[in-house]
Design a protein around this nucleic acid. Sequence first.
DNA 1: CACTTACGCAACTGTCTGGTTGCACTATAC
DNA 2: GTATAGTGCAACCAGACAGTTGCGTAAGTG
Lengths: 123, 123
Amino acid sequence: MSDTLSGVFAALADPTRRRLLDAVAARPDGATATELARGLPVTRQAVVKHLQVLVRAGLAETRRDGREVRYLARPSSARPAGAWIDERATAWERRLERLSTLVDARAPVDPARHGEDPMAPLD
Amino acid sequence: MSDTLSGVFAALADPTRRRLLDAVAARPDGATATELARGLPVTRQAVVKHLQVLVRAGLAETRRDGREVRYLARPSSARPAGAWIDERATAWERRLERLSTLVDARAPVDPARHGEDPMAPLD
DNA sequence: CACTTACGCAACTGTCTGGTTGCACTATAC
DNA sequence: GTATAGTGCAACCAGACAGTTGCGTAAGTG
């Protein structure tokens, strides 16, 4: 999970964490774990752990303010993950598009490639 | 993890699974787990499990062809997840934008809201 | 037919994770 | 100074997960 993309996706994979992120982002001055825990059916400690995951993923940051710790959202860190999905979705859809064109033309679907190592880099 | 968004994010959180998805998508006629395992440092069984995660997330589907099972990519299923990120990133950035405008104007950052329940729905 | 190959199922292991509880520490308020 | 939040740290638990091995079954191939 060391690469940054995995971290972001993993962080967003938990619904509680997504709620939390939305809640933090809704306050430009940030929110503390204790505050956030009040609105959730879990302990403050659980919330802290979730927030730490978000921070590790780069989706949030902390700012110390007296005796409290406020969590701030870092929106732009999510962009690469969104871009990753969008790139793929678009490319795949284009490929499918091309395929259906071939099918319409009654062309065989690359039978030479059947059984070949599919993890080999495409030329 | 029952909601579909969590499933997609969780599926994409694993680098092996992302590689796998790319590899499957690169073959419009699909690829079998056995083929895919040849290009990876893991067992066929492990690959099957990964592919099942992708299928459960709606990112792939299977098609039986004689005695082999070919996995096909389902690009469009990833779109909602990408959209989720993009929406947030954009909204959050706009909010930050507004904040810095306020700061420039030396206006206090909503002190009335400090300590309020941050999980409460915004009005 | 026997042989090979691709798949399916089940059990087992180590690690990660979401969540908890309990306690110690620190800064503010009275 | 004492009481009161707010945070930090550690141990612990149940369940999920990545990965393995072993074995059984089904479908082509000689």
